[in-house]
Design a protein around this nucleic acid. Sequence first.
DNA 1: CCCATTTGACCCCG
DNA 2: CGGGGTCAAATGGG
Length: 356
Amino acid sequence: MGDRDHKNLINELVQGQDLARQLQISLTAPSSSQETRELLIQKIVATFEKALSAVYWNTGSLDEPPQPAGVAIRTSESPPFSGSPRSEDSDKDFRDQDHSASRKRKAMPKWTRQIRVDPGMGVEGPLDDGYSWRKYGQKDILGAKYPRGYYRCTHKNFQGCLATKQVQRSDEDPNVVEITYRGKHTCTQASNVNGASSSRTQENNQEPNLNLGAQQQNVQQSQELLMSLRAGLRVITDNLDAPSQPSFPPFHFPSTSNINPENQAFPTPMIESNIAQNFNSPSYMSPATSGTTYFSPGGVNNFGANPNFATSTSEINDIISATTSAANSPTVGLDFPIDHFQFDQNFTFDNRRFFS
DNA sequence: CCCATTTGACCCCG
DNA sequence: CGGGGTCAAATGGG
């Protein structure tokens, strides 16, 4: 798979190296602010995330051939998909699609990682992650003390990005959040950097390596259009949505068929991170204690690091609210400090443990 | 007014 | 059946 993946991997690593150096310099430079450093760190972490995910995807495909899931290749796996267009409205269709979708989902590789969030310093970090997620559910899990939150890529509808993640706080260590990712992001995430007002402008950062194909851009555009159309229309977006394949190298899809880009897994990076939410532990924690954070990598092209937390403040709120809700306190201020997070070393990939 | 989250209902799967 | 995951109407915030 990829050459391209390989390249991306290397690029990420190089990038990370470069960022680390910048950080190094920054540390000795009195002028640099703490903020700057944090930003660098964030970027570095994002870089690692991307690199790791690239590795996961690749290894997954390599190592787990047997697995139907096919990590990387969808072709094999999903039987015949028909196009799955989705129209949001028709439930029926939806459901049917879901079936197929569910299959696909199952097939999709998934990996879990634990992130420890220590309450420590207070930096508020916006937790941004390069991806934006929309929460679509929360459930109490059998043995778990904390509820599990379900998130999916915000762009799912328009770009067909099937990436989802589940966030759950660890029972034993409240500071640890377990995040399970499924599916790869196929969407383009724009990160807008400073934000100017809501610009919809998406700039593209440079990053030569990964540009999305023009097609993707188109996709985005269409997406935007759709967005602009308010709910109400049910457009048949079927055709529109699925976009993504263009730039992916490995295979192209026979164009004729519809689109279902979705399932593929390809090599591209993805990742992200988020926040933990659910904290409602009975035992309430002092504000300081729980933090959740996370960040994540950027989408396909940008590097993730954007400092902004545009992603979803709501998540944060959720967390907070969840946390507090138990206690019943009205929302407290937003932030709590998130300080730093570190990854635990374990990753699991489809049930397998990846590295120590 | 718009939209993400909330939350209970619903569905699928084991 | 029951658990886990998703949907979708209602809710609340900006």
